[in-house]
Design a protein around this nucleic acid. Structure first.
Lengths: 212, 212
DNA sequence: CGAGGGATTGATACGTCTCAAAGCATGTGG
DNA sequence: CCACATGCTTTGAGACGTATCAATCCCTCG
């Protein structure tokens, strides 16, 4: 409940409902590719359960994670004819999707267009925040920002469905630096890890301050 | 002519024409603020002549340049009620703008909406490329990418209306590092500066390769 | 021609990366 | 149900790239 509320920022119920009515539901296993960079764009997706990452590669293999998507989030938006990112499931997940080009009634079309617009606008905002982070924040600020973001977007659950490598590629750091910053945040009692993939915030104000 | 052609990637003439018909024209002097971060969003802008930068500040003053805009480019798109960036003229410029909320006829409204959509989509694409650059490219790759981008977007003119500080804040580097990388590109005969703010590409393939 | 601000260059410091080893979860087969 | 194998994570030592601090240079404009 809390999680759903927290992740509905990208649109009102009506706009999102269209993907429920017209969409098809699919289960994807961990690491399965949902779509691949440079493939033609056909569908729009929404996470029902689980989590998804989008990634881009440089020619020599360097990887950038574009975004992580949690239940309720819309992804797979592309402004051109080809995917600029690949999308993969972080864990076993369920995903809804709708064909963009489906012949559809006037009302559904307007709803779908509205959903696409809202999700694209939301995507731009998040990409801009991400950009500022990569351009001007230090390693510890990036990791703190990341943890804060996960908490916000998942409604307070400190679950990390992604690997340290995924986090590193999201933050423009190496896996070792991410690990060191996490250890540091833990030893300064800002957060506490009770498992590799699960943490709790012990000092929210400190986390907020460190996120810059 | 070349410059205009090269910068019309964001929409067809019809969609852009609406801002010509309904917009007001304004001259702005170098460093003048066109709008300011956290102000309410009212208008959409288009560069007629000159150039514009958008910037965001972190609380301690670190600055990130979001984008540089050249003649023909649309800017000032915002998805929320408040500006997330400030916009300033890089040099004396002329800018067209339209009120977003203007009462307008059905046809003009559709045209304006279409223009906003196309420009937002374009903005997202460019922000994603920028993100990959900041996350995963080295200093020399960033500078090479930047020069390539300027050439592409201005139709081959190697004019740099921005300071080295602006470039540094766009690339997530310091002014000194930008300067060193430019010197390096020049001594390896990839580009040549015949003035501080004007260069020529001597080896386009090398520039392309170095941009990664 | 002189003043002033931006740009370049140099020396050094610092933060993050790289390489390497050890530790710890997770799942599988005995 | 335990023991091992595997892959992910943590930690350490040292290298490297970029930042910082400082001095000089050089355009541009008055």
């Amino acid at each position: 409940m809390i999680a759903i509320t927290a992740t509905q920022g990208q649109g009102n119920g009506a706009a999102l409902a269209v993907i429920e009515r017209l969409g098809t539901r699919e289960s994807v296993t961990k690491d399965a590719e949902i779509y691949v960079q440079s493939e033609p764009v056909e569908r729009i997706y929404r996470v029902v359960s689980g989590a998804v990452r989008t990634t881009r590669l440089l020619s020599d293999g360097r990887r950038q994670v574009g975004e992580f998507y949690f239940p309720g989030d819309v992804f797979g938006l592309e402004t051109g004819p080809e995917h600029r990112y690949s999308a993969e499931a972080l864990c076993d997940s369920v995903v809804l999707s709708v064909k963009r080009a489906t012949l559809r009634s006037g009302e559904a079309s307007a709803e779908l267009d509205r959903m696409i617009w809202e999700a694209t606008a939301h995507e731009l905002d998040r990409t801009q925040d991400h950009l500022l982070m990569l351009g001007r924040k230090t390693a510890s600020e990036r990791v703190a920002s990341f943890l804060r973001g996960v908490i916000q977007r998942t409604g307070g659950q400190g679950d990390l469905p992604m690997t340290r490598q995924d986090i590193a590629d999201y933050l423009g750091l190496t896996i070792e630096t991410v690990s060191r910053m996490l250890s540091q945040l833990q030893s300064s009692a800002v957060v506490e890890f009770d498992a590799l993939r699960h943490f709790r915030v012990r000092n929210p104000q400190a986390l907020e301050r460190l996120a810059a």
